[in-house]
């Protein structure tokens, strides 16, 4: 990768939505919208809700399905000129394994296994909260995929370090964390939950200290690369994640706030490396 900045899954479509604003070639990589085996319409009702310096979402993995991705979106993503990551979610073990097998048919750089989506009714995050289940799904997908496997972890696990270690032992080539924090909003006037699913995923700068702490804990507990995300909105935030032990960083909700955020982060990282006379930004990885 030409730099460590990746557009986080679910915040950058399949890479073409922002082309009017900047050339995605400048990015280190793009992670696709979360894919499921079959096409999904996503959740009904309100899907996004602003919170203090953040947002709740309950999109529910609206996506065209793995088969369509392999024959359409993956081909488009390959043209982006940066690392292509396919993010795969699922409702059952079979979904994940079959989806991973089908993704062997396309040219991607990394498979990001999403065992952390809080917005689907069955499966999703359930696989990521328990170390045994996380290890089981990781080893089964690892056994069938030809792509490097990065497992995306949820902060809603009781012990994220235990889940991280279990995934590493099960054969994960890397980890990404954190997915959204389970949250809630109530419409006080209507006296009911804002979201049809009641709970939803919180992202944005509001969750950054939690994400940073978890990346720090996990990066110190495993020896595989960690991709850090959760509320990164400036180059300084990205540097903090790298100092905490992240090899790459992902930018998510902040792109909604400012379409140019990743461009500014990449520029800021270059300026920082120059100012500190670093040959490589990785020289500061894990120094805290």
């Amino acid at each position: 990768m030409k730099n460590p900045v990746i557009a986080a899954s679910g915040t950058f479509g399949f890479g073409i939505e922002y082309e009017e604003y900047f050339d995605p070639t400048i990015l280190g990589g793009v992670s696709s919208k979360g894919l499921t085996l079959r096409p999904s319409r996503g959740n009904a009702g309100i899907r996004v809700w602003e919170t203090p310096m953040g947002m709740l979402n309950s999109i529910g993995l609206e996506n065209p399905g793995v088969e369509h991705f392999v024959s359409h979106e993956a081909l488009e993503m390959r043209k982006l000129g940066c690392a292509v990551i396919a993010n795969l979610g699922g409702h059952s073990e079979e979904d994940y394994v079959t989806g991973a097998e089908m993704l062997n048919g396309c040219d991607i750089d990394i498979l990001e296994l999403n065992i952390s989506c809080p917005n689907v009714k069955s499966g999703g995050m359930a696989f990521g909260t328990d170390p045994d289940q996380a290890a089981d799904i990781t080893s089964k997908v690892k056994a069938v995929t030809r792509h490097p496997l990065m497992v995306k972890l949820t902060p809603n696990a009781g012990d994220i370090v235990a889940v991280a270690r279990a995934c590493e032992e099960a054969g994960a080539d890397g980890l990404s964390l954190i997915n959204t924090v389970l949250g809630m909003a109530i419409d006080v006037r209507a006296e009911k939950a804002v979201f049809n699913n009641v709970y939803a995923g919180l992202s944005g700068p509001a969750i950054m200290p939690i994400a940073l702490r978890m990346v720090h804990q996990v990066a110190h507990a495993v020896s595989i690369p960690v991709s850090g995300l959760g509320g990164i909105s400036t180059a300084e935030d990205a540097i903090a994640f790298i100092m905490a032990g992240a090899s790459t960083v992902q930018v998510g909700a902040t792109t909604f706030r400012d379409p140019m955020a990743m461009v500014n982060i990449i520029k800021g990282l270059e300026e920082y490396a120059e100012k500190k006379s670093l040959k490589n930004i990785q020289d500061i990885r894990g120094i805290v």
Binding site: G10, T11, F12, G13, E17, Y18, K33, R41, G42, I46, R47, V48, W49, M55, N57, I59, E62, A253, T255, F256, P259
Partner: peptide, 14 residues
Amino acid sequence: SRMACGMGACLGCT
């Protein structure tokens, strides 16, 4: 519609 990005990326306004 309620939107987060306005760009077609977040799928909040489907």
